[in-house]
């Protein structure tokens, strides 16, 4: 089961409220090093809010959380050095070229000029985007943008990478390629924390948690979840749980 020494994310009763609304309601869970951890939930279930707290973008209302061994309340700066993040909304600079975006974030994370140059070549080659290096990012197709954003998020070789609905809106081929990148990343020992609402993607995760109305209602390997809920697929598991929701999704 879970090896205590290997835990890279741990939360204890982590909560975030906006006024009367409790977006994330006392969640407690742990993620192990090198895992692909699927963070599932319907729209408005609180996935993004929880992830933003873990990334140091949002302050918890109550409860505790530790990422890469650092407290999310007091050591946000330490955490930021050790994580990569890809937001739901594409957030690279559209008016910069492909190589310029890579260079900018490499520089911000303190990589040396030479290292940036070398790694950029390797990366572009691996992505098959060497021809596109001089293109403005806004002219790229969405699938390529997503792959680039993911690559930029792990360019500085973080311990954990957070991906917020990384495959939203891209075609099945691009999604499969994206998941290949996720596997490669996990193989390198980088923990992948990924939210999604594609249930077939949930099957690819090592472990999956399902959020309903701000709470984590289920957390296990996809195989065991299917057994527990006596379901054929993750989709049925998810539907069974989502039906218990009382929250209006937008």
């Amino acid at each position: 089961m879970i090896n205590r020494d290997n835990i890279v994310i741990r939360t204890d009763q982590l909560t975030k409220s906006f006024g009367d609304f409790t977006a994330v309601d006392h969640i407690s869970f742990s993620v192990e090093k090198g895992e692909i951890f699927g963070f599932l939930g319907a729209n408005g279930a609180g996935k993004t809010t929880a992830m933003r707290m873990l990334c140091g973008l949002s302050k918890p209302t109550s409860g505790e959380g530790f990422v890469a061994g650092y407290n999310i309340r007091t050591q946000a700066r330490q955490i930021r050095k050790n994580i990569g993040y890809m937001s739901q909304k594409f957030s690279l600079y559209e008016d910069l070229k492909v190589w310029e975006n890579i260079r900018l974030f490499g520089g911000i994370y303190g990589l040396k000029e030479d290292a940036i140059r070398e790694k950029t070549e390797v990366l572009l080659d691996k992505l098959g985007m060497t021809q596109q290096r001089e293109r403005l990012v806004k002219t790229l197709p969405l699938g390529w943008k997503q792959k680039l954003a993911f690559s930029v998020a792990i360019f500085h070789e973080p311990k954990i990478v957070f991906l917020d609905e990384p495959t939203g809106g891209v075609d099945p081929t691009a999604r499969r390629e994206f998941w290949e990148m996720i596997y490669d990343t996990a193989d390198k020992g980088i923990t992948v924390f990924v939210t999604t609402h594609y249930m077939d993607e949930a099957e690819y995760c090592d472990r999956v948690s399902i959020m309903v109305d701000g709470r984590i209602d289920a957390l296990d390997t996809p195989r065991r979840l299917k057994q527990t809920f006596k379901a054929e697929s993750m989709d049925s598991v998810f539907t069974a749980l989502a039906e218990t929701s009382t929250r209006q999704s937008e």
């Binding site: 990334c55 973008l57 050095k81 993040y85 937001s87 594409f90 957030s91 600079y93 994370y109």
Partner: peptide, 13 residues
């Protein structure tokens, strides 16, 4: 508004 600030905010800058 564009959302790029998120990507900056998660960096240790």
């Amino acid at each position: 508004e564009v959302g790029t600030i998120e990507q900056i905010n998660v960096t240790p800058i």
